[in-house]
Design a protein around this nucleic acid. Structure first.
Length: 227
DNA sequence: AAGTGATCATAA
DNA sequence: TTATGATCACTT
């Protein structure tokens, strides 16, 4: 049971060639190569696909709030694809520090740091395909075009304003065109502090920014290449 | 079927 | 507790 961790890639082309090396592999094959067991219980393998691909490609950020390939400024995201070839889930971007987001700017935010350049790795996500058999697709590097970047910025500024001005109860996942804010917690009892209506601190669920599946679906269509 | 809110595993 | 990796599961 030897676990291996690739060294960090030093260029985009090196990163892409590593993607090519795992393209077409099944989850079981990749896990086998890395010496990692795959649980049979779906609840015990949430996030496993992403972790396996991280290990294979050589991410460096670990548990830090930074892009996965820190030196290259690239964030790795898997994109589970349903039977229709479209993403079947939203994409978690970053957790939110509710008490300090109001001090941030879009360009200085961890959300922007992670979204400015993303390595998307499509993976079969159709629930009818046994998890072990699901194949890894063709990874590709992406940056938002000017129009999409403006929409992301607008979403972020609107959502951040809600958080900063104590509108926690009015803020829900229906807000934002590309970005949304949703709970990101161990469970509904794991609370943290945020701002209430009067600018006071109140206990609330931790939140994170997510990309809507509709948006990531547009991305993969533009870049064209799924399995 | 989609969309939103809740949850699971693990590291530091 | 907060960060990482997300997907599960209930509501609409």
């Amino acid at each position: 049971m030897t676990e291996t961790q690739a060294l960090p890639p030093t260029s985009e082309s090196e990163l892409l060639s590593r993607c090519k090396a795992i393209e077409g592999k099944s989850i079981a094959a990749l896990a086998g190569d890395l010496g990692i067991m795959v649980p049979d219980d779906p609840l015990k393998r949430k996030g496993l696909t992403g972790s396996l691909i991280e290990k294979a490609l050589g991410t460096t950020a670990g548990t830090q709030a930074k892009p996965d390939f820190d030196k290259l400024g690239i964030e790795l995201k898997t994109m589970p694809l349903g039977p229709n070839g479209k993403p079947c889930e939203s994409t978690f971007v970053t957790s939110i520090q509710l008490l300090t987001v109001h001090q941030e700017t879009w360009e200085g935010s961890s959300c922007y740091a992670k979204l400015k350049r993303v390595l998307w790795v499509p993976v079969e996500g159709d629930r009818v395909i046994p998890y072990h058999q699901r194949r890894i697709g063709q990874g590709f590097l992406w940056s938002a075009n000017a129009v999409d970047m403006a929409i992301l910025k607008n979403d972020w500024e609107m959502l951040t304003f809600m958080l900063a001005s104590g509108k926690l109860e009015a803020l829900d996942a229906s807000m934002g065109e590309y970005l949304q804010v949703r709970p990101k917690a161990a469970n509904s009892r794991a609370l943290c502090y945020g701002f209430g209506e009067q600018g006071n601190k109140v206990l609330t669920l931790p939140r994170g920014f997510y990309l809507r599946a509709g948006f990531t679906g547009n991305i993969i269509q533009q870049y064209g290449l799924n399995q």
